[in-house]
Simulated assay, not measured.
Amino acid sequence: MGFLLRWLMAFFLLVATFNPTPWNYSVWAWNNLATETPLAVFLGLLLCVGYIIFLRATLRSIGGIGMLLVLSIFLALIWVLTDYGLLHLDNQANNTWIGLIALSLVLGIGLSWSHVRRALSGQSDVDDVED
């Protein structure tokens, strides 16, 4: 349940920022920046804080190489599904959704990795804390 919640939060953050529908921050801010500047800046800063939290936690748990490895696994899966004819990449909107799912899975795995590692090895990750 924990991974599912973390993944959904990452997916929501990405989809709230951009998706192929008109219901996202990027389209709304572009269309309303002149009339809703304070709200656009406020919401943009909230999204920025969300990205900082997610990216920092992911980088600390699996690192940049780990992020590339997880993303590569999902890209290879997309390649396999396309090669077997189970997935078609001729629709740009579907490709965007696939990209959002892949990126959110990278963030979700990054946020959950410490929990997975603790369950597999019995060891906890501990950050250095200054007294």
Rank of each mutant, 00 (worst) to 15 (best):
L39N: 00
E36H: 12
L14K: 05
L13T: 11
G110F: 07
Y25F: 13
S104L: 04
L33F: 13
E130F: 07
C48Y: 15
L77N: 10
W97G: 04
Y25E: 12
G122F: 02
D83E: 14
L75H: 10
Q123I: 05
R117T: 06
P22M: 01
S26R: 09
M67D: 06
N24D: 13
V129T: 02
F42R: 08
L87C: 01
A57W: 04
L86D: 10
T96Y: 10
A34H: 10
L87K: 01
I53F: 09
W23G: 02
I62R: 07
T35L: 09
L46I: 09
P22K: 05
H115R: 14
S112L: 01
F3C: 04
S26Q: 14
I101Y: 12
L68V: 11
Q123F: 04
G85F: 06
W28N: 04
M9R: 12
W79V: 00
V106M: 07
A34I: 02
R6C: 03
L68S: 13
M1R: 12
H88Y: 09
I53C: 03
H88R: 13
L8Y: 01
L45A: 15
A16S: 15
S112T: 09
F54K: 01
W79R: 11
M9K: 13
D128A: 12
P38Y: 06
D128R: 13
Y84S: 10
A102F: 01
R60W: 00
A102P: 00
V15Y: 12
D125A: 01
A34F: 05
M9W: 11
V15T: 14
I73V: 15
A93Y: 03
S104F: 00
W30N: 11
L71R: 05
